[in-house]
């Protein structure tokens, strides 16, 4: 099968790979590049576990072809902590006991990050809206909503 070159920035590092045409970004990240933080929960865009940030926007990597990402700036949960210091969202998920099996967590954190990047002080309704594309089967969502609200408060206090 014909290979196509893809080149993008992943969490600040340059990556270049040859992939089969039609390879999803999820497979390219997990199987080629070795970033397994995006998870494959459905491979059909209905669970959100594969969520990543492409050029500042939330994207489902299972429905994004790798070959369409040339030149893109891609962010995943594995690159969120800086120099070993957790991002406030990660800290808030820990403190709120918002993870159980953890499989949905990287996708949830990506969705929450895009929300907080655009909306510093989201309302509960805005948090719910931002998370509504991500399935969690363990927590009943409430601890996750609380974690995002807590992280938002921490962020805005730091800014103030």
């Amino acid at each position: 099968m014909a290979k196509v070159p893809v080149q993008f920035t992943l969490n600040g590092s340059e990556k270049a790979e040859f992939v089969d045409s039609g390879t999803t970004l999820l497979h390219a990240l997990r199987d080629k590049i070795g970033d397994t933080s995006p998870k494959g929960g459905c491979h059909q865009g209905t669970c959100g576990a594969c969520s990543v940030i492409i050029d500042g926007e939330l994207r489902l990597s299972c429905l994004t072809l790798a070959e369409t990402c040339n030149g893109a700036d891609i962010r995943t949960t594995s690159g969120l902590a800086e120099a070993g210091v957790l991002h406030p969202l990660q800290r808030a998920f820990l403190d709120a006991f918002a993870t159980q099996c953890g499989f949905c967590t990287p996708g949830m954190i990506m969705a929450a990050k895009v929300l907080l990047d655009h909306t510093a002080n989201p309302s509960r309704e805005e948090v719910v809206e931002a998370l509504s594309g991500n399935i969690c089967r363990c927590t009943g969502y409430e601890p996750i909503i609380q974690a995002v609200l807590t992280a938002a408060r921490a962020n805005s206090q730091n800014a103030a």
């Binding site: 070795g34 949960t77 957790l86 998920f93 993870t99 953890g102």
Partner: peptide
Amino acid sequence: RPRLDSPGHVTGKTAYFADRN
């Protein structure tokens, strides 16, 4: 006590079976 597995979950480092390639 905080869960010892949560830091892996929030950083995407927890290894599930399918993360082995």
